[in-house]
């Protein structure tokens, strides 16, 4: 009985734990190598600048900023502070970030800051912000780069994805792709 169970367990171990994932890796790497390797983005010199799916930290005024990340978008790990809604540390962090954001973005009314921009994403690696969170940064970015705000706004529109199949999820802007597009304007 024990021997029989051991044999069955090993057979299933080989099928599920080895053959299946390795075969899937093989097929995925041949058919969809870019996605299967992590959707990495390389610059003109072939140097990897990040992954399309993984957020990066931007603090320079000439770049659009992403969401709050307690792990500083370090994708060797993932996570957040897991602040409960009633945790005073959450309220404190948000108040501090509102003040900092308003100071760096004169002309933006506090009520216009959408919640996604100053909250920590679940993964700490969210690559997206809402279109509204991008819109309120246009003036700052345009000024820092000496660009026409209309041109920057157009670039935001170009980099805005709608809902999937028109129904699922939320409209969003990929911050890394938008900033790459900004750099290419020069």
């Amino acid at each position: 009985m024990i021997l029989k169970n051991l044999r069955l367990s090993v057979v299933l171990l080989l099928i599920c734990g080895l053959i299946y994932p390795l075969a899937m890796t093989g097929v995925a790497q041949v058919v969809m190598p870019t996605q299967a390797s992590g959707s990495l983005i390389a610059d003109a010199n072939g140097k990897v600048v990040g992954s399309e799916l993984i957020g990066q930290t931007f603090t320079d005024p000439q770049y659009f900023w992403g969401r709050i990340s307690s792990i500083d978008n370090n994708a060797a790990g993932s996570g957040s502070n897991n602040y409960a809604p009633s945790n005073p540390a959450l309220t404190e962090r948000v108040q501090k970030d509102i003040a900092a954001f308003l100071a760096a973005n004169p002309g933006v009314a506090q009520a216009d800051i959408p919640a996604d921009l100053l909250t920590n994403s679940g993964s700490g690696l969210d690559p997206h912000i809402s279109p509204k969170a991008a819109a309120i940064q246009v003036q700052r970015v345009a000024k820092a780069r000496n660009l026409d705000p209309a041109k920057v706004q157009a670039l935001v529109a170009e980099n805005t994805e709608g809902r999937s199949m028109g129904v699922f999820g939320e409209p969003r802007v990929n911050v890394l792709k938008l900033n790459l597009a900004l750099d290419q304007l020069k």
Binding site: P85, L90, A115, N120, S121, G122, D126, H128
Partner: peptide, 11 residues
Amino acid sequence: AVGSMEGKEVR
């Protein structure tokens, strides 16, 4: 206005 976004993903 968009709900409680702490700990959630924009997409």
